[in-house]
């Protein structure tokens, strides 16, 4: 039995930061550059090591949408096969998959032998997922899921984090996606999001949006009294924030690397 699972996001890491020489000598254009990019790749999860059956089912699936599957990259997940301790030769598997018109671009949850075969074929190893396409948004109070500090709250996927209880001083909330707070954020608290931040109560602490570099991220709040606001690393402390009128909903966004505070409508 095979099924094609949900997509996996691959994100290339920006290497500019790790290679300062590239930025210093920027007047002579560099020969190559690493850029951050995100794209979806389907995951082929196997539950059987019967390659004849696999080939047959794969061909049936490809026939259903030939243009989609032709030359499509695919990541192979061998977790179920290895859990059942079925012997599966990765070389043979990739041959079968190639015959169906697909390109194997990664292997996940392979055992040592399978991983070695993958490397020999020039196929990279992917990590096992911690969470994949969780349905809907999570509504959580400031209960912790992390073991590092009990004041930190982090989720693993990029759905919106929704907080309904006040964020107290000393607490730190991090969202890989957007962050919505339906209460106040106390002075001394920190809220961070890779996406946008919405605070429907008073914002008195620190709010940092677009923390992984998203310059399009915005901060929306009903009552701006923040100690610090930041979008993609461009920050302002409370003394320098102009345009904040108490109890008036405002939005904060980046315009040419400067933070702009404006009423929402």
């Amino acid at each position: 039995m095979i099924f094609i699972g949900s997509g996996v996001r691959i994100q290339a890491i920006t290497r500019n930061l790790l290679n300062p020489q590239m930025t210093i000598n920027s007047h002579s254009s560099p020969a190559l550059e690493f850029k951050s990019s995100t794209f979806s790749v389907p995951v082929l999860s196997l539950a059987s090591n019967d390659l004849i059956l696999v080939e047959q089912l794969l061909n049936e699936k490809v026939k259903l949408a030939p243009e989609f599957f032709k030359h499509s990259p695919v990541i192979v997940d061998l977790q179920d096969v290895n859990k059942k301790q079925l012997v599966l030769n990765f070389d043979d598997l990739t041959t079968v998959i190639r015959k169906a018109g697909l390109f194997v671009v990664g292997i996940r949850s392979g055992n040592e032998e399978q991983q070695a075969q993958a490397i020999a074929l020039g196929i990279p190893l992917n990590t096992a997922p911690t969470s994949e396409t969780k349905a809907g948004t999570k509504t959580k109070s400031t209960k912790t899921t992390d073991n590092e500090t009990n004041n930190e709250f982090v989720t693993n996927d990029s759905t919106t984090v929704m907080i309904t209880k006040p964020v107290r001083s000393g607490q730190r909330i991090y969202s890989h996606g957007d962050l919505i707070v339906l209460a106040q954020v106390g002075a001394g608290a920190e809220i961070l999001a890779e996406g946008n931040i919405h605070v429907y109560g008073s914002l008195r602490g620190k709010a940092l949006a677009g923390v992984q570099g998203n310059t399009e991220a915005r901060i929306f709040c009903s009552d701006l009294q923040a100690e610090l606001i930041s979008i993609a690393g461009n920050y302002k402390i409370s003394d320098d924030i102009h345009g904040a009128i108490s109890n008036t909903p405002v939005q904060i966004y980046l315009q040419k690397n400067t933070l702009v505070v404006k009423t929402i409508i």
Partner: peptide, 17 residues
């Protein structure tokens, strides 16, 4: 402010939490 901090700890570091 210190009470606010303590409230955060009550909500996260207690046995009930």
């Amino acid at each position: 402010r210190d009470s606010d901090r303590m409230l955060g700890l009550l909500a996260s570091k207690s046995r009930r939490a």
